[in-house]
């Protein structure tokens, strides 16, 4: 197990390098001049622009810029924006709220998704199952901005249950965006759980468990669900990364100062260091989430052993 962990961490290095280099190339391939963007509508002063270009190594070839940047990252320095703000500052400001939002969404989709999927599988073809099938279909088909607006209008304004926009002093204000962000994934989890559970409920070992005279609850939770969880964990792990980086619309809708909004804004303003910094962090999160999933496999299924 220890050796496996080390091997996986070593494997993460080329993934990280490759992904950051790719994003580096892409960001610099974008048309537009970041220094000119600083000046807005006016033409930038050529002298100042030249000084700034020199200061930010913009005249160097791309690979040199990359090496310079990665050298900084390895020592914990994510560089600074063209306005002189440390990228690390921006990220430490933006990431906590995004992580909170992602964790809320993750909890919602994991708990409600699995519970709904299991109950649908148990009552296969019955009323509840049909409700689950129809509502999940609806959730995956409706775009998030429609869903978010409807949720704000009904839950927030008409019934006044939850706050509709972010307030840093009110942790409850992240609940509604968390639910909206989770909705589509929750629907996938529900369907995945339903299918996986129906399959395991037909398995021979479940029949054995019933023949042993175990209670229904024990048969379902210990014998069927344990086995059904394996594909669900895979999806949840991959989704954790997506929740962290992909919440642009939800963040905009609920006025949350998170990573997604920052990323979109930085791409627009050609703030290359910010884009690369955030993406690098997101890659790290993906790698970590995947590693955790792989380690969880071994816990859930003893047939998988890492040597």
């Amino acid at each position: 197990m220890g050796r496996y962990l080390i091997r996986r961490l070593v494997q993460a290095i080329p993934v990280l390098l490759g992904a950051t280099f790719l994003i580096f190339c892409l960001v610099f391939a974008l048309p537009g001049d970041p220094i000119q963007m600083l000046a807005g509508e006016k033409r930038a002063d050529p002298n100042i622009a030249a000084i700034l270009r020199e200061q930010y190594h913009l005249n160097d070839p791309l690979y040199q810029q990359y090496l310079h940047y990665m050298g900084g990252v390895l020592t914990g320095d994510f560089g600074e924006t063209y306005t002189g703000r440390a990228v690390a500052d921006i990220m430490s400001e933006r990431f906590p709220v995004t992580v909170q939002l992602a964790l809320i969404a993750f909890a919602v989709e994991a708990v409600i998704g699995v519970a709904a999927g299991v109950s649908a599988a148990l009552g296969r073809g019955k009323f509840l199952d049909n409700i689950v099938l129809i509502s999940t279909l609806l959730l995956v088909s409706v775009p998030v901005f429609v869903l978010g607006s409807i949720a704000q209008l009904t839950l927030g304004v008409q019934w006044d249950l939850l706050p509709i926009s972010y307030d840093e002093n009110d942790p409850m204000s992240l609940l509604l965006p968390g639910i909206v962000l989770a909705a589509a994934s929750m629907a996938y989890i529900t369907r995945l759980t339903r299918t996986s559970m129906m399959e395991t409920l037909r398995a021979d070992y479940v029949r054995t468990a019933i023949a042993k005279g175990l209670s229904r609850r024990r048969v379902i939770v210990r014998h069927a669900l344990r086995n059904a969880l394996i594909p669900i964990v895979t999806f949840l792990g991959a989704d954790l990364g997506a929740l962290m980086g992909g919440a642009i619309i939800t963040e905009r809708l609920f006025n949350i100062p998170g990573v997604g909004g920052q990323l979109a804004q930085s791409v627009y303003l050609r703030e290359q260091p910010v884009v690369i910094g955030i993406v690098t962090c997101l890659i790290l999160i993906y790698i970590a989430a995947n590693l955790i999933v792989d380690l969880l496999y071994a816990v859930l299924d003893p047939r998988i052993r890492y040597a």
């Binding site: 398995a203 070992y205 042993k212 005279g213 175990l214 344990r226 086995n227 003893p302």
Partner: peptide, 25 residues
């Protein structure tokens, strides 16, 4: 019936590999 199952009438199944739960010792 559940109380009888396993304790007073027990059953042995054909394929022990698929009839034993793979994830429990």
């Amino acid at each position: 019936r559940r109380k009888i199952r396993g304790s007073r009438i027990a059953m042995i199944f054909q394929d022990a590999l698929s009839s034993l739960n793979p994830v429990l010792s």
